[in-house]
Simulated assay, not measured.
Amino acid sequence: MVKLKLPEEPGDFNPTAAGEYWINKRKIDHTENTIRSNQKDLDPFLMWCDEHGINRVGDLTEWTIEQYEDYAHAREDWSPITIKNKLQTLKQFLRFLGEKGALDSYLHPAVTVPDLERSKEVNTEKWDKTDALPQIRYMRNSPKWFGTFEHAVTEVAWFTGRRVQAIAGLDLSDYTREPDEDDPADGPYLDFKHRADEGTGLKNKLDSEDPVEISGDVADVLDHYIARERNNKRDDNGRESLFTTRQGRASIAKIRGAIYIATQPCIRISCPHGENAKKCEYRKRDHASKCPSSRSPHRIRTGSIQWQLDQGIAPEDVSDRVDASVDTIRRHYDVPDDREKMENRRRKYTGVLEDSIDDGDESRGQPQSGNDDDDDDDSEGSPPAPTQ
Rank of each mutant, 00 (worst) to 15 (best):
F149D: 08
L97N: 02
P367I: 08
D235M: 11
T244W: 03
A262E: 06
K193F: 13
A258C: 13
I329P: 02
D223F: 08
H52P: 00
P383E: 15
P10L: 05
G248F: 12
R249S: 01
K254T: 15
D131Q: 10
K290Q: 08
P80D: 06
A196F: 14
E343R: 14
I357Y: 10
K144F: 13
I83F: 07
I214R: 12
D376A: 04
A219S: 14
K5M: 08
D220A: 13
N141I: 10
T200F: 04
T200N: 04
Y225K: 04
H108N: 14
R321Q: 14
T31H: 08
I252T: 09
W158E: 07
T64H: 09
P10K: 03
G58N: 04
R295A: 04
E240M: 07
D337F: 12
G381T: 15
L242Y: 06
P15K: 13
G360D: 15
Q247V: 15
S293W: 02
G58T: 11
T31G: 13
N123V: 14
A132K: 06
D12Q: 08
V212N: 02
G303W: 04
W158V: 12
P179E: 05
Y68C: 05
L242D: 11
V156C: 11
R234W: 02
D174F: 10
I357Q: 10
A152F: 14
V218P: 00
Y282F: 03
T82H: 13
D236Q: 05
C271G: 05
G53N: 11
G201Y: 14
A258H: 03
T302E: 00
A288H: 01
D236Y: 07
D50I: 12
D323E: 06
R230G: 01
R195T: 10
N33Y: 06
D378K: 03
G351P: 08
I357D: 09
G216L: 13
V111L: 02
